[in-house]
Amino acid sequence: MKKEETHISSYTSHAIVLIVLLFLTAISVLVTGWHFGPFSVAVALIIASIKVRTVITHFMHMKFESLFMKLMVTGVFVLFALVIIITFIDYYLR
């Protein structure tokens, strides 16, 4: 088995990720303040998903994990999305 080097994230990269996250939060607050109805709901949820992805890839170090871990985490999120979609199909077609 080959020896894997542990990747050490730099302080600067963590700080940049934080700035991106704060920026996205600001956009999300501003956009929902305009009251676009269903549109702002969609924007808020899309921004939240981008933020979650950023936290998982950088802060939770998923970028440097094995392919197995990446597939597993992606799989669980896909499963969760399917649960929501199937529930709504059931709910609207009742």
Binding site: S9, H14, A15, V17, L18, L21, L22, T25, V55, H58, F59
Partner: peptide, 8 residues
């Protein structure tokens, strides 16, 4: 968000 950065 800031606390997430400090723990990382």
């Amino acid at each position: 968000l800031v606390s997430s950065m400090t723990v990382a």
